[in-house]
Design a protein around this nucleic acid. Sequence first.
DNA 1: GCTGAGCGG
Length: 82
Amino acid sequence: MGRKLIVTRLSFYITQDKLQKLFAPFGQLASVNLVFDPRTKRPKGYGFVSYNTEIEAEKALKAMNGRIVDGRLLLVEPAGDK
DNA sequence: GCTGAGCGG
C-alpha cells in the first residue's frame, strides 16, 4: 500500500515524538517509527510514518519534504509496505 | 558528544 513514508536525513537528536508531531497535522497517523540502531544505541537518522490514507501520506510528503527540521533538511519519500 | 546515505523491527 502506498501510504507509508520514509523520512531520511533526520537529525540524530530528533525523537520519535518530534517526528510524530511534525507529521500529525497532515492526517491521521497510523504509525510513526524512528529507526533505532541497537549497535550504536543511537537513532539511525531516519524513520517511517504511516497514514490511514494515501491522500494524507501524499499531503504530508509534499509538506514535509525539503523542510528544515532541527537544522536538517528532511527528505521524505514513499516507502514500501511490509 | 556532532557521523550523514539510507527502506526499520
